[in-house]
Design a binder for these strands. Structure first.
Lengths: 198, 198, 198, 198
DNA sequence: AATGAATGAGATTTCATTCAT
DNA sequence: CATGAATGAAATCTCATTCAT
């Protein structure tokens, strides 16, 4: 308060909204959306429930706001992808960039993956579906053989799964991410080549 | 009562437990575990909530019972796999059989996939993790290169994802299942060969 | 089953009613009347709840039946006391005999003492009150000074309390019972003498 | 509404917590802890059940809070007693003061006496036991003859019992309280003298 | 003499949400 | 910018009791 560096503690002042989003996402990811109550979020922040309602109209809106902030890069990626030629290089680049996006917002994606049911009829559910769809349209060639289409979807899924389901493989997170990216890239590449050959 | 064989309605008597499991799974899969209330289940069955408690001690127990009944084949598969030599053929056969198991209990697996957060601290959560672990131990070679290990995990995930994330690919379910199986088998095969070569 | 002596195990056959009473009293005394459910009683006996209803019309009736069986001696004591002259010796004898009755049905009296609220509007509540009243009428002289009347009531209470509230005094149960009886007798005696003198 | 100072009705605002405690204690004392539902308490206060949960985390906590507020004087008394010499005068003073404390929180003590079973495994059960223990340690001489120890316990019990079991003795409450105190004091005195003489 | 299946009533508790201050 | 107090709706679960078999 007043100091030049403000330091660690109690940096309140205007950023409550941000803090709510952060804490909420943590709890949502850890416990699930339904099991996380506003009371809990408020307690973690040391404010009252009513304070949350000053910043967000509903519980859902908290989630929506976090979601939109952190998944904007996907929109950009899709936009970018749509303007590129549908070459193998493009697809590989999409996979690479998507992998980075996932790594950059891991808790949110973990949340989305693990709370599909809870989220299905929320606004974010719809939006997420649409984005996935958008991604697919870019890397999946609708004229390709079915198994090659599947390969592409599998590539995306491999990236998603890579985040949470490799905990017991003993390797550093960075190594794992690379390995996952390699497999995903491979899948897209095989799909592309299978299609070319046909 | 009326028809010769009693037919559809009013087949009560003795099968209530089974009917509860069926209805519960349907609703859990459709709406999510947390969002499905016992009231709803009871109403669908035209019994009182208390009747559910006659057959099951808790809500969780309903889920557990369904889960255990329908995932027993996985246990058998793991058992079988453990006694086979760790050859490529075995792994391919595991993938094939697992694909069949998934297809045979699609709603349950859809549920497990979409409700990971909700289910995490339920008993089934633990059990499921263990089973996945068991499966992996059979098809993943711990000495293989990391990317080949990832391929195997990805194969399993592809099978799982194949069930719910290909709705918009236009092809018959049977065709899709075949394609998915093909991709998964391929992943395992590549992983195996990669390892051999090394 | 069939042996001459029948032995320990499974001595069923006709005595279920008795066994229900015993188990019920144990549980009532241990946990309280309200907290003891019929399910629990049934489980302890390894029969179904419905079986209890074959032997007793209601939960209350179980209690009533136990109560009546085990407190009959009080009725006899009162009857006897009413026919004696109201001498000191009579009063002392009442105290002595009552002490024995209490010791002989300790769990029931513990129950009655600790569940007064729960039992108040049950039939046993009324009955118990009446019996206490009857006892008092014999040992309390209505013309005595107030503090001497109190002494008599206190004597009875001392007997009751003696059963459960002396656990931490280090002495054998038998010694304690004697000491309690001594104090109670003393109180009655003092009351009587106080009155005489006046 | 009407009166100058707002008077009786609608004094809401700020004192709800207190009102809950008061109503709860009344109902607990009248009907017993288990038989008193939160619905009932809420209705008596003309608020919703949820309002109770705003002020207290559980039903038990309501009881605990009332208990702690009203039995603090006992703690003080014990503290005081511990610092006094263990003379007869001290003991008599303890008895006198305890009698006053009981009279000052009669409904609570009636409740505790009549709901021992219900309260046994609640937090208050433990606490109450401890306090009784504390009191005893002050007035009971551990080297005294057993019957003298019993006399002291009986004194305490006489005070307790005096509150609820003398309704039919025809005398004013104040007279009765005096008589009870006299008897209790006498018991302690006799115990003390018995010990002295030995 | 007892069971299996079920019910109706009600208990405690939790939650998202509102609003005057 | 936030709180204190409260609500309405609903959730999970328990219990004494019933009755056909």
């Amino acid at each position: 308060m007043g100091g030049t560096m403000d330091g660690t503690k109690q940096q309140r002042r205007g950023n409550t909204r941000q803090r709510i989003q952060d804490v909420a996402l943590d709890l949502f990811a850890e416990q699930g959306y339904e099991k996380t109550s506003l009371r809990e979020i408020a307690e973690h922040l040391d404010v009252t429930k009513a304070a949350l309602y000053y910043h967000f109209k509903t519980k859902e809106e908290i989630l929506v706001s976090v979601y939109e902030d952190r998944t904007r890069p996907i929109l950009d990626l899709i936009e970018w992808g749509r303007q590129q030629p549908h070459t193998l290089e493009t697809k590989q680049e999409i996979v690479r960039r998507y992998s980075e996006i996932l790594a950059g917002a891991a808790p949110l994606f973990r949340f989305m993956q693990e709370n599909q049911a809870a989220v299905r009829e929320l606004r974010v559910g719809e939006t997420f579906k649409e984005r996935m769809q958008g991604l697919r349209e870019i890397i999946v060639d609708p004229d390709a053989a079915l198994h090659d289409q599947v390969r592409c979807v599998s590539a995306i899924f491999t990236l998603h799964a890579g985040m949470h389901f490799l905990q017991d493989l003993n390797a550093s997170p960075e190594e794992k991410r690379k390995a996952v990216l390699e497999v995903a890239t491979d899948l897209v590449t095989q799909a592309h080549e299978g299609t070319r050959r046909a």
